[in-house]
Amino acid sequence: MSVDTSGIRLQRYTRSPASSGLAIPMARIALILVPLVAWEVCSRLGLINGFLFPAPSAILNKLWVQSGPNGNPPYAILWHVADSMLRLLSGLSLAVIIGTLLGVGLGMSQRARLVFQPIISILMPVPTLAWTPVLLLVMGIDNRTTILVVFLAAVFEMIYIVASGIEMLNVKMLWVAWSMGASRRQVFWRVIIPGIFPCLITGTRLGTGYAWRALIAAEMLAASSYGLGFMIYDASEYMNIGVIYGGVMMIAALGYLLENVLVGKIEAATIEKWGVLNER
């Protein structure tokens, strides 16, 4: 009756990474480091305009000073980052939640799809920044404006990807849950959400990218005191070139962390563990 399972291996075959070992990581680091070093050298030797292109070491020093108690205002960078993050994460969570709900609604109902498809297709390509002046007039220079911009930047992508994720979901998975007597709520939480998880991650990843870009731009227009976008805008008013470069570096680094590290962690804990990526 029972089967001898001792001989069956549970290991999955994974493609081994390039056997060249360190070559790829080295090349990656070199691609970042070599231009920086060249920049540093050229700037110090006076080969390039030191005012417009201050040496990277000077930029990093500026960032360091501005993050500390001697910054103007003290700990300025930390406040800028904190404010930007607060806006980004609030807007993004709203976009993920509302986008998922609307996306599931659209994906599950053909009628809803037929009704809403045109309006979404019309609104989706409008650059979020185009809304900013209107929002500014309605709500003023306020966190609500920037949060709403972030929300708008990410929500359409989310709706779209979630709805198409539902269309790709094996309908028999729903059948299995229905034949177990699952309620709508149970189907939603136990089948639909995990079933579209790969799409949720892709949507969040793309949405984060869009939201981050929109946020920085919106902060240039609609932030009064803090935020990385505001910091750059403000620095440009005072020709504080070092801060501008520092801001760009921070934006790149934080964007990388958000998109790849944070979302990447979620990915590794879910769809990679389940092995769904391998099944495709």
Partner: peptide, 11 residues
């Protein structure tokens, strides 16, 4: 119900 293509929940 048991389907030909298993339809397990991979998560």
């Amino acid at each position: 119900v048991v389907f030909q293509e298993f339809v397990l929940f991979p998560w």
